[in-house]
Simulated assay, not measured.
Amino acid sequence: MEINWTKEVEARKEALLEDLFTILKVDSVRDDAKATPEMPVGPGPKEALEAFLQIGERDGFITKNVGNLAGHIEYGAGEELMGVFGHVDVVPTGTGWDTDPFEPVIKDNRVYARGSSDDKGPSMAAYYAIKIIRDLGLPVSKRVRMIIGTDEESGWQCMDHYLQHEELPDFGFSPDADFPIINGEKGNQSLYVRFRNDVAGGKNQLISFDAGLRENMVPQDATVIFTSSEADKIQTALEAFLATHPVKATLST
């Protein structure tokens, strides 16, 4: 049987977008200040997880909430288990948005909202891929389990907890990067740098340096406060740097 996959997706486009928007509207930034035993990483991630599981339950899949930190939606039968690893938590919104980051909008055929590409959008696309396979009655030789985390952007409590209580898939992939498939991700390392705040023979002194919202986010902006007896020299060096780098900066005295 030849299947026109594009046609199958187009037939479900409105339903997919409706379900995606349901998830995107949830502010699922981790909030430790509001965390409780029932909401381990705050109310938003828990709400987004429950909303995703409710979609799976509505569509007739096996679903399970694992301690409000993770959950899964399962389809198929067989001895082997394939995992599809997604997450519904998002990084802080930051500034510079033209629209509300938790009120998704479509512009020029693109969905704009926090989490539309990392990772609510790809996760919903993967869910609908499973749903289309089920709807078409295609044969599957394995169990397929959509595993949904709530703390991927921070400490991975979700997967630590999930794997303590649930079966480890035999293999899998994560719809959380470039198309078409990712079966592994590069590691990361956090560096904490400490240095003296006086340089250049005492002519310059660093008072404070502040940048970024999370360790795993590219800093949107940075603010440095320092004292110096060489302001003109620093201004000239800054202008030279800006001339060859795609960033914006100002020096105020």
Rank of each mutant, 00 (worst) to 15 (best):
F209I: 13
G184Q: 14
Q157M: 13
K142T: 04
G149H: 05
E230D: 09
A231D: 12
D176K: 00
F226N: 05
I181D: 10
T223K: 08
F209M: 14
T150M: 04
L163F: 11
L163K: 09
V144K: 03
M146N: 07
D221V: 09
I147G: 02
L163G: 05
R214G: 01
V218F: 00
I148D: 08
E152I: 00
R196H: 13
V144G: 02
S141I: 09
D170Q: 08
S228A: 03
K233H: 13
T227H: 10
P175W: 05
N183V: 13
P180D: 09
L206R: 08
A177E: 13
Y162I: 09
I182G: 02
T227R: 11
N216G: 01
D151A: 05
L213G: 02
N183W: 13
M217W: 00
P169F: 08
D198W: 13
N188F: 15
K203V: 14
V193E: 00
Y192Q: 13
T150D: 07
I225L: 09
R143Y: 08
N183L: 11
A222C: 15
R145H: 02
D151H: 04
T150H: 05
K142Q: 04
Q189P: 02
P180Q: 03
F171Y: 15
M146L: 15
L213H: 02
K142M: 06
R145E: 12
I148A: 05
V224C: 05
F171S: 10
Q164L: 09
D160N: 11
Q205F: 14
A177K: 11
D176I: 00
T150K: 06
G172I: 09
F173L: 04
I148L: 13
A231E: 14
M159W: 06
A222F: 07
K142E: 12
D232E: 15
K233Q: 12
K233G: 12
P180V: 00
Q205Y: 14
G212S: 06
N204M: 15
E215G: 03
S174I: 01
V218A: 03
Q157F: 09
T227N: 11
P180H: 06
E167G: 01
K186Q: 03
S154F: 00
H165D: 12
G184C: 09
S228K: 00
M217F: 01
A222Q: 12
T223E: 10
T227Y: 10
S190M: 05
D176C: 00
V224M: 12
S154Q: 02
G149W: 08
S154K: 00
E167Y: 02
S228I: 06
E152F: 01
K233N: 14
F179K: 09
A177P: 12
V144L: 06
L213W: 02
D221E: 15
S190Q: 10
I225N: 04
A231Y: 09
I181S: 04
H161R: 04
I148W: 11
T150C: 06
G184M: 12
D170T: 10
E167S: 02
L163R: 05
D232T: 14
S208M: 13
R214T: 02
A200N: 14
Y192E: 06
D170L: 08
I147A: 07
Q157N: 07
E230S: 07
D176M: 00
F173W: 14
N183F: 15
R196P: 11
F209A: 15
N204C: 15
M217L: 07
F226L: 11
F209D: 10
E215F: 00
K233T: 14
D210N: 14
I181L: 11
L163H: 06
R145F: 04
